[in-house]
Computed example of a mutant assay.
Amino acid sequence: MSASIHRLAGRPAPSLDPMIALVADDMNAVNAVILSRMHSQIPLIPELAGHLIAGGGKRMRPMLTLASAKLLDYTGNRHHRLAAAVEFIHTATLLHDDVVDGSDLRRGKRTANIIWGNPASVLVGDFLFSRSFELMVEDGSLKVLKILSSASAVIAEGEVNQLTAVRRVDLGEDRYLDIIGAKTAALFAAACRIAAVVAERPEAEEMALDSYGRNLGIAFQLVDDAIDYVSDAGTMGKDTGDDFREGKMTLPLILAYARGSADDRTFWKDAVEGRRDGDDDLAHAVRLLRDTRAIDDTLARARHYGQRAIDALGGFPAGKAKDALVEAVEFAVARAY
């Protein structure tokens, strides 16, 4: 599913363009909701929120809600507000994450916490969470409220789990997958699943879309964690090696540590605990990751989860919506190539 395979087959590299085209009209309605609900009498709130929301993100999560609704031939408009709620949850978590991580860059731009400070970023994140819950309540479905509120709680749990795992070289693969399943995949899953609820489709279809989103989210995060070591700020929108300097044990490091020599393990322990975080140390880390095939195998895992996402769509009818959802998975994985 890599871009190189697509080119060899005479196909263009996968992209989100089919999904963007599929949901363009719906996305205009979602953007109108976002702009309306970002408004506040306190000027700093729309200024800071707008910096991130208008900052070049792909809006993948709300697009998944809209594309899933298209897949189900839903003809109402409840999904517009709910897609906006999904985007607000995502944006709020980004604002909080950047404060926790002390990040300087987000999507190639200075983070809100660097411009306005940590307190403002945390409080505007709280504002956006509150707006998302207003939108859920207005929808009137207790089931939708339960799905999205549960996802919000799971995301917070995942962030706390990750926080307590920072600089822990003994972090295992199972706990890592628990973390990314919570902090990333939970919102992907909920974003897709709520479309089946508003379309009043059977629970089997609801859970199929949940599985699609969850596996896509895991694949998406695995790729992010791999290309943190082999990309640059222009591609990733953040500095190469941010995870390394922050002492995050992502899957590439977990695999390299497990496969390394005694000297390699000593290096990884020193690096993760913050004693080896210079540019030369990062270069050495990248060499070890390549030598142990940790990057390649992380991306192989991403392809595995990507295929599981595609398989979850097997029971839905062929058409533009299904094609766009499949290509979104291929795009998520192909970013690494």
Rank of each mutant, 00 (worst) to 15 (best):
R78L: 09
N215C: 03
E134W: 11
G247W: 09
G76I: 11
A334W: 08
A321C: 06
N161F: 11
V137P: 00
L222S: 03
D224P: 11
G278I: 13
A318I: 12
G125N: 01
A67F: 01
D297Y: 02
A208C: 05
A208E: 03
R265F: 04
R61H: 05
M27A: 10
S132M: 06
D239L: 14
I115M: 14
L71V: 11
E205R: 12
A13P: 09
R59S: 03
F267C: 08
A153V: 15
D104R: 15
E200A: 15
I180L: 01
H51I: 08
A13R: 15
A153S: 11
F220R: 05
V166S: 09
K320N: 11
R7K: 15
S130F: 10
Q221I: 06
H90M: 11
P18T: 05
R293K: 15
V30P: 10
V197D: 01
I45M: 08
Y229R: 02
I147W: 07
M1H: 13
I34P: 03
R293T: 10
A283H: 12
D17H: 10
G274E: 03
M27C: 05
L16N: 05
P12E: 13
F316A: 01
V86F: 00
A83Q: 02
H80N: 12
K320S: 14
N31F: 13
Y229E: 00
L66C: 06
D297F: 05
L8G: 10
R7W: 09
M60G: 07
H79K: 07
L8A: 10
M60W: 04
D225R: 11
E138W: 08
Y212M: 05
A199L: 07
A67Y: 01
G181D: 04
V144S: 02
R293D: 15
G217Y: 07
L123A: 11
A29C: 12
E246Y: 05
G241W: 06
I254H: 01
S130P: 06
D174N: 13
A21M: 08
K320G: 12
A233W: 07
K70S: 10
L163N: 06
L123W: 04
L71E: 00
L66P: 04
T235M: 15
K248Q: 00
Y176Q: 04
E327P: 09
P62C: 12
A199I: 12
E200V: 14
V122L: 15
D296E: 15
I5T: 14
A190H: 06
D243K: 06
